[in-house]
Design a protein around this nucleic acid. Sequence first.
RNA 1: GGAGAAAUGGCAGAGCGGUCGAAUGCGGCGGUCUUGAAAACCGUUGAUCUGUAUACACGGAUCCGGGGGUUCGAAUCCCUCUUUCUCCGCCA
Length: 424
Amino acid sequence: MLTINLIREKKEFIIERLKVKNFKAEEIINRILALDSSRREIQSKTDMMQGEMNRISKEIGALLKDGKRDEAEAAKEKTYSLKEEIKSLSDKLIPIDNDLKNEIIRLPNLPHESVAPGHGADDNVKVREGGIMPQLSETALPHWYLIKKYDIIDFDLGIKLTGAGFPVYLGKGAKLQRALISFFLDEGEKAGYREVMPPIMVNEDSGFGTGQLPDKEGQMYHATLDNFYLIPTAEVPVTNIYRDVILSADMLPVKNIAYTPCFRREAGSWGAHVRGLNRLHQFDKVEIVQIAHPDHSYLSLEDMVAHVEGLVSKLELPYRILRLCGGDMSFTSALTYDFEVWSAAQKRWLEVSSVSNFESFQANRLKCRFKEKGDKQTRLAHTLNGSALALPRIVAAILENNQTESGIKIPHVLIPYTGFDMID
RNA sequence: GGAGAAAUGGCAGAGCGGUCGAAUGCGGCGGUCUUGAAAACCGUUGAUCUGUAUACACGGAUCCGGGGGUUCGAAUCCCUCUUUCUCCGCCA
């Protein structure tokens, strides 16, 4: 969420910037400013009265100590009406505080100045591309046939065990998952990330911290008996490590990497393009998360983009990097790069990673701050994250792009991890 | 799951109705000493909101696990939730 100070000081700037995200902010901001000023007015009144109250209470203490009972009783009389007033004022404050908070969290993050306006995927800006497009024969198969042909992923079995979108990986299919996870984690470690293995269920506070709650709860599986949520991404537990934490500036950037399964209900998003591995309820992903100094967070972002680019290159997949336009960016992001790999039999680009800088937007919810050495003041840190990488679509692309008459070739970098060079 | 105990500043740990944002120790920061370092000694040491000449300088408010209550006044008393520890049970 945006800070109230920014809203107070840069109202017009915010309204202009949010136009890039096609968001009309003026009305909300006016409501926020009105609520904020009445909040402050009431708050400073109650603060004054409370101060008076504290003064009298101390006085009573002193009088009683001196044995002046009557004077103490007289002083008590004075507090009764004051107490009433304080109570009624602070009762007024509660709904105002709530309304204010509810309004503020409705404002999306400001897009970075490099973000182009636009309404959807067509307006995204291609930054660069790489890799070699494979030439497949006429008889090339999309991955949903390949997985049956080689018996490596079984969707029907998943339906039996759980439901649609919960595949069962078998034999070399399972090993390929394990190989990719290890490969991604090892590459992350080489790039200076600390490996983290977090819980895959989180509480409400964590859901709020990274912005899944209160709005997107329909997208998460909810264990209602204990009020836990299955994580949609490792971003949630890993970023929440830094909730209510004050870091020292010399620790930044903090770099963590985590493998977790991810669970998404994907309510209402099933359609023609979601066959096979393209969209699942449960999938595996390795996520990188950085907490950065505001002055250097865009360096961190570039560093993360370079890391992900290294991964897709090493896997020998044709890819392109897009800078998302305002309309295609998430609510919380200031700047997002999407990575897509070419899935040669489907003849489609598949999104496999989304790397974002949230600047202080998440940090403000999380209260993730840092302090410069010798400085009294705390400041909000910047948070960033990106997939490095999500597995299913990478697997889809590997299967499709590397298919041959005699089987599916495993990319060279993975062979030490799989222990085989061919799925056949 | 049952019984009991506890939750205080970065950490350890006192306080158990008024002068407590909180003793003391450790740690951190600054200094003295030293060629330098250590030791010793001295000083300093949280967060949030808010007012003023927008200055973290001064003033006010709030925060002792979370929420609620009693009281003129709560870290201290009561209720409730959460968490941790010990014992018993169960268990990968």
